[in-house]
Design a protein around this nucleic acid. Sequence first.
DNA 1: ATGGTGGTCTTACCA
Length: 257
Amino acid sequence: MFKLASWNVNSLTIRLEHVLTWLETMDIDVLALQETKMIDEKFPLATFAERGYHVVYSGQKTYNGVAVISRHPITDVMTDIPDFSDPQRRILAVTVGGVRLVNLYVPNGASVGSDKYEYKLNWLDKIKSFLDQQLITYPELAVVGDFNIAPDDRDVHDPVEWEGSVLVSPLERQAFSNLLELGLHDSYRLFTQEEGAFSWWDYRAAGFRRNRGLRIDLILLSHQLHKKCTGSHIDKIPRKWERPSDHAPVWVDLQLS
DNA sequence: ATGGTGGTCTTACCA
């Protein structure tokens, strides 16, 4: 069994012990991180290396930042996509275990109609073109990360309250749908799941205790790869730990040949 | 109850 995971850690400095504990207890093969919030010079390379992990990272000060932690060697690393110059560190594409992995920290978008919202939609359009190219080269493709989009109302604790808001707005959902139309599957919906399953809960107003959450952390799989997927999960347990990330880790089980 | 919490070279900003 090959376990591929994704986790928005909201600062790897604060969450390093959580990440190490979770990797070991869950026996994760590959973990994509978002919001590491650290420059590359500060990445805890030795901490992972001495535990036998391979790591790649693309970070910046204070904001954003993506990384991949792996039990297997990592090759063909990309931190930027063609024809899109962006100082924000949100993309990390790698090859590991024969799988092409694209790790994304999709922009939040702030509020519908804002400059950040326009940036988000444009960013998603650029990503779509990139993934279209990647699928040609790499039929076994996984696109994972914090999408900052709840794909449909099942992924929202209160769809009426959230209607039209950023993270659920029609244009964002259309942009997400456009990614699926390239030939990708939302792995979580390949299996029967309980209702009210989310991956992010606002720190404010006791969001987690009241399960006021959204499912925005996703693992998308190409046709070739989804045939090898035997499970897709959200682990809420780390959200209950002391000083948690506001996101839960998610993972898929893959039967790689 | 139009707030609340959490992270960051913080006193503003992002989420």
